[in-house]
Design a protein around this nucleic acid. Structure first.
Lengths: 198, 198
DNA sequence: TGGAGCATGTAATGAGTTACATGATTGG
DNA sequence: CCAATCATGTAACTCATTACATGCTCCA
């Protein structure tokens, strides 16, 4: 009955519940800020997984509070389930990049429009890179709590215990965004240059 | 009735159908080889979308052949739908990277196991980078049809018309895999080194 | 004190995956 | 011509997103 392989979303919720009981909404907020950059999820998923894990005995639900809110607490079975999830080989990553589709079908797309799309997305990625750099710079500067725009709030600062792992995931964001920006430069070189009349 | 925003999977099928009528299985094969690296899909999705697009008048289904196979042909409405999809701002990409979850929850994962997972995935990405490099090298060498392992079959060579776009998407794969490999090196530096007893 | 805005949770729909059924092909 | 294998399509299920309902909170 116990273990059919936990999905990664559920496992993540269990991961957060190691830090103490939380309500669904709180878990959603935490997930967004701590893993949202490489694991998308929605509020509905959180509640669905909590419900399922309650039935499975991995978490225990408290009684209803203010807005029908319940706090969920991880059980011993929940900790065990998390551990066996962490022991399995992680699935390969999936990337779904609509802009690349557009480039791949470039022959059927108006060249000017394609360039507009590319420019817009380059700007987005430049901003994300800058945001990650700001977080990194703040992290290396110590706990100087000057909270700039796009920088995670002080409440989300990793504990000393967690810091190297948070830095490691941040490093991925930095490497990824830098690579994407390089790619935009590649594309400029590869694609046929605009013809005069456009 | 006509246009509620086409999803990207459906749009891609329309994209392929620009090259002529195709059967569901053929579309699936083409999709895997031409966009599979940045847009995952399954056979079931292909058939579902074709069914829906038939109802919507974007494609026309031929009569049943050999194994109940039907060929689908793009209609004028289908071309129009593809064009308006291509005109909309593409959605931001989504990445779901289970290995990063594991790193993010590193505090709760056995250090030795975490390193094993990292090593296994580094090998996968090294292989993917090598495969992309092989494709690139073959592409720049002209149509020399020495088909090595991991290299796309000659049937999938882009037409001259399509070549710059195929190179641009390939460039993404190269940039991405290189960045991931860099990141593995970062992680080595960031994470606490193994303690003697492990 | 009442109502505008927001936080929390739920329901309905859409997309994606896995597992299966059925019909061709091919080699002995 | 039969059996093993593979290609094609479908059905059942899981996961993900969007749109909604309801109830707090806080300020005019």
């Amino acid at each position: 009955m116990a273990s059919q392989r936990l999905n990664s979303t559920a496992a993540s919720l269990l991961g957060f519940l190691h830090d103490g009981p939380r309500t669904g909404a709180a878990l959603y907020r935490t997930a967004e800020s701590r893993i949202g950059d490489f694991w998308s999820l929605t509020r509905s998923q959180v509640y669905r997984e909590l419900e399922a894990m309650t039935s499975a005995g991995l978490v225990r639900a408290g009684s209803r509070g203010p807005r029908d809110a319940r706090t969920f607490t991880i059980t011993a079975a929940g900790r065990a389930a998390f551990r066996s999830w962490a022991d399995l080989d992680p699935e390969p990553e999936t990337i779904r990049f609509p802009l690349l589709l557009l480039v791949g079908f470039g022959e059927h797309v108006a060249p000017a429009r394609l360039r507009e799309h590319l420019a817009a997305h380059r700007a987005i990625h430049a901003a994300r890179l800058a945001a990650y750099e700001a977080i990194r710079d703040q992290a290396v500067a110590g706990t100087g709590s000057t909270s700039a725009a796009h920088v995670r709030s002080a409440a989300d600062q990793p504990s000393p215990e967690r810091r190297p792992f948070a830095l490691a995931t941040l490093a991925f964001g930095l490497a990824y965004e830098a690579a994407v920006l390089d790619w935009f430069a590649d594309v400029e070189r590869i694609l046929p240059p605009p013809r005069d009349s456009e």
